[in-house]
């Protein structure tokens, strides 16, 4: 008996010692602020695996490969009262934005800012909560750095399509497969995205699999649908 309790006791002692040491270090250097302190914008629950810490204010999120993912990121904040601007996205599907939950009365489109893109984006970052940027904007790297700093100061979120050097979070869609089509029958119903999450403070690249456009009623309405219902509930980290 005693041979079994002794390692437990020593473990407890070591643990308490380690905790005391950690406390001492924290007292000397200053405790790190918990991550929840940072103000965040609301995020749709199905995107939580992508950004476990939430959509932090003042962040730059770069999204490659899926416009609908950009809209989904902005949707919950917009529904909760934030203003959203889409700059340099002449092809954005407004109906898709509305279906994702973006409130169109607080949604402005600036499709062709032209040579004055930097000023227009700057003004929007100052006054709007979420700014969606298209891929072909006339922004230099210095402009981008300035805009990121401005977003950090004002507490807005920039969601940029394509590469953004120094983005806090980089979401790259590596695989997107649609379900519901057959050979001349069916229709697009649901899709699976595999998103690689990287970024400045993200450590190693994670891969997250998530289902977009999954309408719960439809999944059971189609007979013979080859969809595994459980998959939606699984957090589904593939790698």
């Amino acid at each position: 008996m005693s041979t079994q309790t002794d390692p437990d006791a020593s473990q407890q002692r070591r643990l308490s010692r380690a905790r005391a040491a950690l406390k001492g270090v924290e007292a000397r250097i200053g405790a790190p602020r918990p991550a929840t302190d940072r103000p965040v914008l609301p995020l749709a629950p199905e995107l939580a695996p992508l950004l476990p810490e939430g959509l932090g204010r003042g962040q730059v999120v770069s999204v490659t490969g899926a416009t609908s993912l950009m809209l989904a990121l902005a949707s919950a904040a917009s529904a909760a009262g934030s203003w959203t601007a889409a700059i340099g996205m002449p092809t954005v599907g407004v109906v898709a934005a509305a279906r994702r939950g973006i409130a169109l009365e607080r949604f402005a489109l600036i499709p062709h800012p032209g040579a004055q893109a930097a000023q227009a984006v700057g003004a929007c970052v100052d006054g709007m909560d979420v700014v969606l940027l298209g891929e072909r904007l006339a922004l230099s790297d210095a402009d981008r750095r300035r805009l990121a700093a401005r977003a950090k100061e004002r507490g807005g979120v920039i969601i940029a399509a394509g590469e953004w050097p120094g983005a806090h979070v980089t979401l790259t869609v590596e695989r997107s497969s649609w379900d519901g089509l057959g050979a001349g029958d069916g229709r697009l119903i649901e899709r699976d995205l595999t998103v690689a999450v990287g970024g400045r403070r993200q450590g190693a690249v994670r891969r997250v699999r998530l289902a977009l456009d999954a309408a719960p009623g439809l999944r059971f309405a189609r007979t013979g649908a080859r969809i595994d219902v459980d998959r939606v509930n699984v957090d589904g980290e593939v790698a």
């Binding site: 416009t67 092809t91 599907g93 407004v94 898709a96 934005a97």
Partner: peptide, 11 residues
């Protein structure tokens, strides 16, 4: 055209 709506609509 049934939902879901396309996220990119060419003008």
């Amino acid at each position: 055209i049934p939902d879901p709506a396309p996220a990119t609509v060419l003008p």
